[in-house]
Computed example of a mutant assay.
Amino acid sequence: MSSSDIFIGETIGTAVLILLGCGVVAGVVLKQSKAFEAGWVAITLGWGFAVLTGAYISAPLSGAHLNPAVTIGLAIEGGVEWSKVPIYFLGQMLGAVIGASLVWLAYLGHFHAHLADREIVGGPGAQDTVAADRQRTTGAGPVLGIFSTGPEIRNVGQNLATEIIATTVLVLAILTQGLNGDGKGLGVIGVMITAFVVVGIGLSLGGPTGYAINPARDLGPRIAHALLPLPNKGGSDWGYAWIPVVGPLIGGAIAGGIYEIAFA
């Protein structure tokens, strides 16, 4: 794979992943969406299909990592040259920002209506709403959850451990499936299995932190949230932002080490 193929494939694939993944969250969260309050199962299924779609699109070009933790795990396992790791990272981050920006564009009117609702953002007579309390205590704005993750109970050790454990499961599941004969990534069945694994992780381990399990998936949209022109959007919770980056990277490295010890 050439460097340009890797960069283009990861940019496009990650953009599609984030567009569909954050898109399902927007549909469930924004009050005037037809999918409003569809629930956690809808979100986990949506993210699974987002992985499936982004991976199928990008696999012929880059092998469809779409996740720095996966790239780290594959580099430790030996399936990726370390010199190409930064190229994967750049494509994944750019794609994540693009995907989040497309969600903003697709739901632009809904964002504005949601963020003008006094029950959501507070205002005269609504200063004690749950959303207002959360923003005051955590720095997370009322639509940040559409873009990036956040914990239900803020505990650094627990939050970090959750992301490490969940990402280890994901990356180990990918590594143990093996690669295509051409070395370009998972086959058709492997991509589908990975999508199911993502759904399973969301249902089983997503409750505490929202299961970032992907540094680009969290950091790219968080940057987009900070930059996009949305009224009353609130803060981007940068105090928490390192956990869904560091945790998945550690998890990817652990999965690569487990694979080398137990399966190689």
Results as ranks from 00 to 15, higher is better:
Ser3Cys: 02
Val80Lys: 10
Arg136Trp: 08
Leu94Glu: 05
Lys233Pro: 01
Trp242His: 15
Val245Gln: 09
Ile87His: 11
Leu61Ile: 01
Gln135Leu: 13
Trp104Met: 08
Ala75Tyr: 12
Thr168Arg: 05
Thr138Met: 13
Gly141Pro: 04
Ile76Arg: 05
Gly247Cys: 14
Thr176Ser: 05
Pro248Asn: 06
Ala264Val: 07
His65Lys: 15
Val130Glu: 10
Gln32Asp: 15
Val28Ser: 01
Ile153Thr: 13
Trp47Ile: 00
Gly91Gln: 10
Gly185Lys: 01
Gly91Met: 12
Ile258Asp: 08
Ser2Asp: 15
Val70Gln: 08
Ala26Ser: 09
Ile18Gly: 14
Pro68Thr: 09
Gly13Ala: 10
Ala166Pro: 03
Val41Pro: 00
Arg217Met: 08
Ile8His: 11
Leu249Thr: 07
Ile57Cys: 06
Ala166Tyr: 04
Ala96Lys: 03
Thr129Gly: 09
Ile43His: 04
Ala161Thr: 09
Leu17Gly: 11
Leu108Thr: 09
Gly235Lys: 13
Thr53Glu: 02
Val169Asn: 07
Gly109Ala: 06
Val246Ser: 00
Leu179Thr: 06
Val16Gln: 14
Asp237Cys: 14
Asp218Met: 00
Ile189Leu: 07
Ala35Val: 03
Leu61Trp: 01
Thr11Asp: 06
Val169Arg: 09
Ser3His: 05
Gly95Lys: 04
Gly157Val: 14
Tyr88Gly: 12
His65Arg: 01
Ile12Ala: 15
Ala38Val: 00
Ile6Ser: 03
Gly150Tyr: 12
Gly79Phe: 11
Leu30Ile: 12
Gly99Ser: 07
Lys233Ala: 14
Ala224Phe: 02
Gly235His: 15
Arg136Ala: 15
Ile57Phe: 02
Gln32Cys: 09
Val246Lys: 00
Asp182Phe: 14
Ser148Met: 04
Glu81Pro: 04
Arg154Trp: 13
Ala26His: 06
Lys184Asn: 11
Phe7Ile: 14
Gly13Met: 07
Tyr211Lys: 04
Gly206Arg: 02
Ala166Ile: 03
Phe196Pro: 02
Tyr259Val: 03
Leu219Asn: 01
Val191Leu: 12
Val121Pro: 15
Gly210Leu: 02
Trp242Gly: 07
Thr168Cys: 13
Trp104Pro: 03
Lys84His: 12
Ile189Ser: 10
Arg222Trp: 11
Lys31Val: 03
Gly185Cys: 08
Val97Ser: 07
Ala42Asp: 00
Leu19Tyr: 15
Lys233Asn: 12
Leu74Val: 05
Leu19Pro: 04
His225Gly: 07
Glu119Pro: 11
